[in-house]
Nucleic acid binder design. Sequence first.
DNA 1: TTGATAGCGAACAACTTGTTCTGTAATCAG
DNA 2: CTGATTACAGAACAAGTTGTTCGCTATCAA
Lengths: 185, 185
Amino acid sequence: MDRRQKKTREAIFRAFTSLLSKKNYHQITVQDILDTADVGRTTFYAHFETKEYLLRDLCADLFGHVTDTALGQVSCACGDAADSVFLHLVRHLRQNDRGILDLLSSENDGLFLDYFRGEVCRLVESTYGARLSIHLPRDYLVQHIAAAFVQTVRWWLSEECTRSPEEVTACFLAVTEPLLTADDT
Amino acid sequence: MDRRQKKTREAIFRAFTSLLSKKNYHQITVQDILDTADVGRTTFYAHFETKEYLLRDLCADLFGHVTDTALGQVSCACGDAADSVFLHLVRHLRQNDRGILDLLSSENDGLFLDYFRGEVCRLVESTYGARLSIHLPRDYLVQHIAAAFVQTVRWWLSEECTRSPEEVTACFLAVTEPLLTADDT
DNA sequence: TTGATAGCGAACAACTTGTTCTGTAATCAG
DNA sequence: CTGATTACAGAACAAGTTGTTCGCTATCAA
């Protein structure tokens, strides 16, 4: 890919992310992005059809990366229990990696939470897949557990991340563990 | 209140609700509302500062009503267990009362889910208040249970409400019951 | 070096928002 | 019933936003 394309694309992503951590998505104007990223109007629309598409691409980039990293932790088989994937994820989030925490905690909640939840579903599937209780519809359980994790993170954020990742993860595990069959480790 | 005021206010609410069940909130223009409600521009802005305020007022109206109705069920002491408040609520929702179901199932999810969750928190407090396990922070538990209910409704909607209210409520109770101390009935 | 491509900047039409003005009709108090 | 008040309609308005187009320049890859 042309070096110029890559540079502007990244500049736009950076500018957009930065703006999102300060403003509501719907208050951000294309002009804001142009000014912040220092790119021309034409250039922006050459890269992204609309602001919506930019958002979609950014989310795919951001949350895809998070999940992949988290899943990587699973396969690295460092000896931890499967549960700890979520601990890793919380620790990862606390470092505000790629500004994700800013996005989740800003007024843009609604927009990103769904993307986030979608990714967490994948995570739940591959982490707990075999241990899901069969007494309830499988997809219901997966979605419930994913929603519980997202909710846990929101609660953590609402307390300004004062609690430790261990504490937060413990809460999450406490409310979801009864739904799983015994661990076979 | 002046009869005229009441009429236009209701016409605007009706038009807005109708539009929301068809379109995304951010795609709805003030002009759309004016045309649908058949009121003048000046009139609209005399009633609501902006479209955002209209949304806020509508939500307060809608969800406040739902919770009050649900809470009324509790105090009517018709002999049912406290759990059944949620069954009542699901049944209530299924009738698409005041078009709430349309709003929750449309593409406006994010907007209304938060209002809804807030109201459900109140419901959880007054229904399970005394039975919340003390091993976890109280507000965490309340929010978790409320989020679980909202998630359950979303799942139900995603299956186009094919399942019965009883079945849906059973799922919700199954995932939250382990978090409560024994019922003292 | 050269042809292709990415970017810039300015101007553009179309649309949206929220305000202001004037005139009309419904409502309410006495 | 009457007169004052209030709500409303309609039109016009400035300001801001979106997405497109055009001509021109800078950069890249071969």
